[in-house]
Amino acid sequence: MAEPFIRIENLTKRFSISAGKRIRKTGFTAVNNVSLNIERGEVFGLVGESGCGKSTLSLLVLRLLEANGGAVYHGDTNILELPRRKMRRIRRDMQIVFQDPYDSLDPRFTLERIMNEPLQIHRWGTGAEREARIDELFAAVSLDKQQLKRYPHQLSGGQRQRLCIARSLALSPGFLVCDEAVSALDVSIQAQILNLLLDLKDEFGLTYLFISHNLAVVKFVSDRIGVMYFGKIVELADTDELFDNVLHPYTAALLSAVPDPDPFSEKKRDILPSGVPSLIDPPGGCAFHPRCKYAGERCARESPELRDAGRGHLVACHRLEC
């Protein structure tokens, strides 16, 4: 395997909810001791229900939110320890595409200004060079440069997301986080954007952290997949291995929730009992035990460790440790 490009170690983020200054603080742990490696050139998919901490994780990895503990290595540097100036420089190499393209674009900026923003921040090139760069990026995402004088609200949803992608690539980053990057789009457009992302990956040699609640989407783009539940990675494996050999009951439940295209299929669904547990008052032991049909006495008591079950397939579940 190639050397890890992004290495996340024991990353933890707690949020405190304080009602007033003196009152006892309550809080919850949105990301709990997460470690994972992303190799250069791969697409690492991260899947989980909303509220599982995957978006928080994406903000932590880019240091748009300060972590409470752990480290994020970009190559050899732990970016969480970098002083502001050096952090700024490294941001050129780490970019993000958000879920809602409309919310990601300042409504008062023209497309031209939007595209120029990253270039100006990093004092990239001369005016003419910037113009040429923007042409190049627009061509790469198939946007029409006739539209440069327009405003984001004059574009379609798909075009807006193409614009966000073009902007994120302006400074030639090596690493791109796609946080639910297609979830806000029409299904027909989702496929276009996913294919575009995969094409761009080859064209520019990108590495992706691809986050989604949609297992089908993650399966389509990812080389490896991590399944996140309640702030922790509960299962992690190569895409094929994960789908051929599901080990964690939560992953199994997620999988069976993906609609089956064959209406006559006899496949049974594992319906998850509703109700993600309360974040503020989390269940002890394995966080999944109140919803797990295999839950035993040990599951309520102690939290399972993430272990290798062979072929690099990591899973955190007591059922598999016997």
Binding site: L64, R88, Q95, F98, S104, S168
Partner: peptide, 12 residues
């Protein structure tokens, strides 16, 4: 808003 986050992600 995400555009503010995006600007910060760019290093603004």
């Amino acid at each position: 808003r995400s555009y503010v986050l995006a600007a910060r992600a760019m290093g603004g």
